[in-house]
Every structure is written in structure tokens, then in C-alpha cells.
Write a protein that binds this DNA or RNA. Sequence first.
DNA 1: AAAGCGGGGTC
DNA 2: GACCCAGCTTT
Length: 345
Amino acid sequence: MRRVSRLKAMTSPATTDDTRPTVPGSGPRAAPATATAAARADLVFTPEPMLVHERVIDWFEVHARDLPWRAPECSPWGVMVSEVMLQQTPVVRVLPRWRDWMQRWPRPVDLAQAPTAEVLTAWDRLGYPRRALRLQAAAQAMVERHSGEVPDTAEALRELPGVGEYTAAAVACFAFNQPEVVVDTNIRRVHARAFTGDALPGKTYTSAQRKLAVELMPATAPDGGATACAWNASAMELGALICTARAPQCEICPVADLCAWRAAGSPAPTEEQQTRGQGWAGTDRQVRGAIMAVLRTGDAVERDELLEALPLPEASAEQRARCLDSLIGDGLAAQTETRVSLPGA
DNA sequence: AAAGCGGGGTC
DNA sequence: GACCCAGCTTT
């Protein structure tokens, strides 16, 4: 692994020098004693990964949120449901839906057999309802191909509908204690700041970022993967609670004194690192969401009345029709004769 | 690599 | 009003 990276020159005096530990080897690698002061100021060093692991894992053990899918008694299925619900949806909104879901469908086979209309209604307004369809399809695949159990390897998980690189690794790690490389938006940001020195990781997950994530994984030999899983969970939690996208709380960050981004003077995000939102008003996603909101309220409705009643004055008749047809094509809605409903309702 | 896909909280 | 959130799938 590259041990020292030459980054942008510091734009302001480091404010954390006084707080850096004096224990030998516990701070960012110091510049060689022979370097001049000018040369030293021009260098920013990446932190020692093992020290960051220890600090962040220790922090996690004290400050981690008490989330139900982290409980020791939570089933692999509970972990998997949480991971799918958490795809692009904040924890606080997932919590109540997850509790209801697990109460209602405590095993994969229970969801596999449920009417799709009920599944979509229970999904409520978590967003991206295709996730609910795929989760049910995944449950059906588990019944058919895995004896109704959640697969215990990332490779097998990856074959399930709606399970991508992140979710496969996360379920394998958090449900089965396997040392997979878990990389979500929080972890990408923590890596970008602490190790790369960037304000934000950027929109796309690059091969360089994946390589860094692999290199940062703790060795698995000593404990069979326990530290690796702890690192995954801890880095994610740090990104969610402290190293946030908007206003990171560096004052209480356990690795503030080791952070490459801080050492570089906390530069603002570059143009390249800006994410740019997708837009919402006027999009098909908004119209589709409005249609789904009506369908979730109950029985079949006349197609024309449904489309007319949408609370979106800006949406043209063409857009409304196109969106309903796309929902039907996605399996999120069904039409018999002129009446529309959730599928199977 | 980029676009499409939901919805709500926050600054 | 723009940004952000434990991403996945398709083009």
C-alpha cells in the first residue's frame, strides 16, 4: 500500500496540531526529521489505517445507535430487509416500516406468499417501490433455491433480485460475520476525507475508491473477520453521525487529528465532487409517486378518474398516461378493463 | 459512465 | 430551492 501521499499544500495552518497525541507513531506520519519546515508544510500524510480502525471501532462501541437490525437476536432476514429498505432511504424513516414488516413477514417464506398489493401497501412511502417488488422476488428465490433461508455468502446474495454489490456485502458481513468489503455512501465519504483528503467522494464509485476500500480492510487472520466487520459498521456509523456530508462534526470526531482532509485545511468540494440533485417537480418520478399514493389507499379505481384526480396541475394528460403505463409495465400497478389497482388487489 | 427511479427532512 | 439519504438496474 502506498504509505505516504503527496497532497495539495495546506492552505491554512493546521488547527489540530496541539491536540495531536504525542505517543510515538500514533499521529499522522511525521515528515522526516531532515525535512525543512517549508517542505514539511507542503506534505500531508495519510493516516495509519490500523490506528484509525482502533479509534473508530472504539468510538462505535460507545456511540453506535441502538438500531433493531443490529441486535444480536435479529435474524439474517431482518438484516436483509433493513439493507434493502435503507437503499437511498434514511434510517429514521425506515425504522417504523421495518418493525411492521418484520412483525408481519418474519421469514422469507412469509413474504414470498404475501399478496403483492399488501407488500406495496406496507412499503408505504419509503420510495422506490420497485425495491419492495424485488425484495419479494428475492424472498421467493430464497424459498425456491435456498430452502427459505437467506444465503450466507456475498456471491449467492448477489444473485438475488435487488441485491447489488453493497447489499450483498452488507448482509454477508452484518448477518453472517463475513469479512466482505462494505462500501456505502457514508464509508466512501469517510475514506475520501480521512485517507484521500477530499471533501467529498464524488458521484460515481471509482475503481480507485474500491481499491482503497480493499486496502483499508483489517487483516482477517487474527480473529476470523470480527475486526473487519466491526470496521465496516464503525466507518459507516461515523459517516452517518459525525463525518456527515453537510456539516461534519469534526470537533467530536475520534480521528480528526488523523484526517487527511483536515490536514489539508478542509478544502471545499471541487466542481467534480459536487453531486447535483436529480430534480423532482415535474418529473415522471413525481407523477408515478402520486399515482402509487392513490393506489395504496385502497380499491380499484377508474383509470380516467385516477389520472384526472392527481394533485399535480402541471402534469399533462400524456405524462399521466405514460406514467401509469410505466407503472403497469413495472408490475407496480395492474389494469383490468378500465379499472386500475395495485397488482393482485 | 450516465440516466431513471421516491419521498421527505434539512439548510 | 438545492442537497442528501446503508443503491440497483438498464442503457
